[in-house]
């Protein structure tokens, strides 16, 4: 067990050295939602007023929807980057090199997934902080509860990324599926438009997406002033999604399968 933990630490450091050389995609997916927030803030304010959405006391600024919604949406675009970690190793032939060592595949996958998890949390942290500084977002509830919602959703996305790697044979399959999924889930989950404005056919489907629970949890804390107990259900559902995706990934993952990385 101690040896496994030590190896996991080595693998996390190794993966971080690999990823830190090219953080441009993460940077872009952090800047883009900030640009969109600046453009969409008045629109969201009007839309929420029309819909009668009043997530908390005080005047609406639009940031209550723009910041959590767009943060959730753009974090979902990072799902394909989680899968890329493993497709990249196939492209470099280092996946098989790893498999020829004494490191178990499960430990390898978990260790490598730690870095994208950290990057997802960092993306949320930057977006929420920038939302407060630039757009006047006020967090009325507990910061601890906010952190747990973010962590549970990030875990869910990492598990989804590993599932994408396990289920797809080529990187093109995975990135295409991930991008479509990100848009559909963002739309259904109320990340694009306030939940109260979702079309009638979409509203019943919304709870079947993790993005719905993430947006709901974030808004409960930010606008509704909720503490940990107030978002326990959201955190629990997100954790269940994460567990389900991870289990499915475990069932579908064939470590010996040759993946096609660059086409």
């Amino acid at each position: 067990m101690r040896r496994d933990l030590a190896v996991a630490g080595v693998l996390v450091g190794h993966e971080w050295r690999l990823q830190r050389r090219d953080l441009v995609p993460q940077l872009i997916l952090t800047v883009m939602p900030l640009v969109l927030m600046a453009f969409l803030l008045p629109t969201y304010r009007s839309a929420m007023a029309v819909a009668g959405s009043a997530p908390g006391p005080g005047p609406l600024s639009g940031a209550e929807q723009a910041v959590p919604g767009l943060s959730v949406m753009f974090s979902m675009f990072l799902v394909s980057h989680v899968g890329m970690v493993f497709f990249r190793d196939h492209g470099w032939n280092t996946w098989n090199r790893h498999r020829a060592t004494a490191v178990p595949v499960a430990l390898l996958v978990l260790s490598k997934a730690v870095v994208p998890l950290g990057l997802l949390v960092a993306q949320f942290t930057v977006l929420l902080t920038a939302g407060r500084v630039l757009f006047g977002l006020e967090v009325r509830g507990s910061l601890g509860a906010l952190a747990l919602v973010v962590l549970a959703f990030a875990l869910c996305l990492v598990a989804l990324g590993v599932l994408g790697f396990a289920a797809c044979r080529t990187v093109v399959q995975m990135t295409s599926a991930a991008n479509v999924l990100a848009l559909v889930m963002a739309g259904l989950g109320g990340a694009l438009v306030p939940r109260d404005l979702l079309p009638g056919w979409a509203a019943p489907l919304a709870p079947a997406t993790p993005s719905y629970w993430a947006v709901r949890g974030l808004q409960e804390v930010i606008s509704g002033g909720a503490g940990l107990t107030g978002v326990a259900r959201e955190i629990g559902v997100l954790a269940a999604f994460a567990g389900g995706f991870a289990l499915l990934a475990l069932l579908l993952l064939k470590p010996e399968q040759r993946k096609v990385s660059w086409s």
């Binding site: 190896v7 080595v10 190794h14 050295r17 690999l18 098989n96 090199r97 060592t101």
Partner: peptide
């Protein structure tokens, strides 16, 4: 293996050092 399996964005030293640690 017959096919070269290295981490191109790391230096030669980092490749060898990381692999020593992993092994």
């Amino acid at each position: 293996e017959q096919e070269i399996a290295v981490f191109p964005t790391l230096t030669a030293r980092e490749n060898v050092r990381d692999w020593a640690a992993i092994c």
